[in-house]
Amino acid sequence: MRRTICWVGAVVAALIAFPTTWDNLSGAHVRLDREAVQVAPGVHEQLDLALVASWAEQVGPTDRWWIVLPADRPEGLTTRGAVYRAYATFALLPAVPAASIADATVVLRPEELP
């Protein structure tokens, strides 16, 4: 009996799961060009991509950068400024975030963080 219950349960569960996952996958399929892929995290987080692009122009591959954050606001478990910092850490590699402003070779001073 146990096996029968388990088998019937598995078939029912699979019949519920499979179409849902199939549809979810179909809905998740996106085709982006190379440029859009590179900025996809920034687009997803609604960051000012022009601002980040200007940082990329100032920062070389061996630099240690520091962002002086203007007035910040909470966002989820973090803050808007921290999201910009996180994106900069990902996008500006192999340049790395400095340990402190004194340690930085490039200091970035955005006026505001949209």
């Binding site: 859009a36 996809a40 995290p41 687009v43 997803h44 987080e45 996180a86 994106y87």
Partner: peptide, 9 residues
Amino acid sequence: PLDDYDAWA
């Protein structure tokens, strides 16, 4: 695209 927060950050 790698756009889920923890995935890229």
